[in-house]
């Protein structure tokens, strides 16, 4: 049957059940069925990195997995990472350094950055660039993104607590 099937999964900490057509990708499911439009689709073939989400704690392309495959899994999107303040220091550093322009790649870049720094506390610039090898950004030229991630690595290593970001005045 190609008809929608009920799936239950955890998204940003909330367990929910929805009907999804088997052919609907996780990215489309998040965007269309849940209104989580922070996950962007830029190529729909796993090349641009705009649709990265955390699936059971590791970044994957939302466009390269069908929502039905994610049944039973735990998904975190940029909205969840943002609202839990897990990436507040990254957001702050990106803002200060202007490490984004149009912002379309930014959610995927933040997911990569968060995962990289969880695995490696003080990555070199080359390691940061390597981690970003699947995140396409047409606006910045990447250097500001590398700078911002490097800054956060330094701040986290120095034990600086991440203060909340979004509630501060712009």
């Amino acid at each position: 049957m190609t008809a929608p099937v009920a799936i239950t999964l955890s998204v940003n900490g909330e367990t929910l059940t929805r009907a999804a057509e088997p052919r609907e990708t996780l990215a489309d499911f998040l965007r269309r069925d849940l209104g989580l439009t922070g996950t962007h689709t830029g190529c729909e073939m796993g090349v641009c990195g705009a649709c990265l989400v955390m699936l059971d704690g590791a970044p994957v392309h939302g466009c390269l997995i069908f929502a039905v495959q994610a049944a039973g899994a735990s998904v975190q999107t940029v909205e969840g990472l943002s609202e839990s303040a897990m990436i507040a220091d990254l957001q702050r550093a990106f803002h200060e350094r202007n490490a984004l322009q149009c912002g379309f790649c930014t959610p995927g870049v933040l997911v990569t950055a968060q995962w990289l720094l969880a695995r490696k506390a003080a990555p070199s610039r080359e390691e940061i660039r390597d981690a970003l090898s699947g995140n396409y950004c047409r606006c910045t030229g990447y250097e500001a993104i590398v700078d911002a991630i490097e800054t956060v690595a330094r701040r986290r290593s120095a034990g600086e607590a991440a203060s909340r970001f979004l509630e501060e005045p712009a």
């Binding site: 439009t37 940029v78 957001q91 803002h95 959610p107």
Partner: peptide, 12 residues
């Protein structure tokens, strides 16, 4: 205006 983009709240 970059803050909402960083929060995944861009409106494209």
């Amino acid at each position: 205006n970059a803050k909402r983009l960083l929060a995944g709240k861009g409106r494209y």
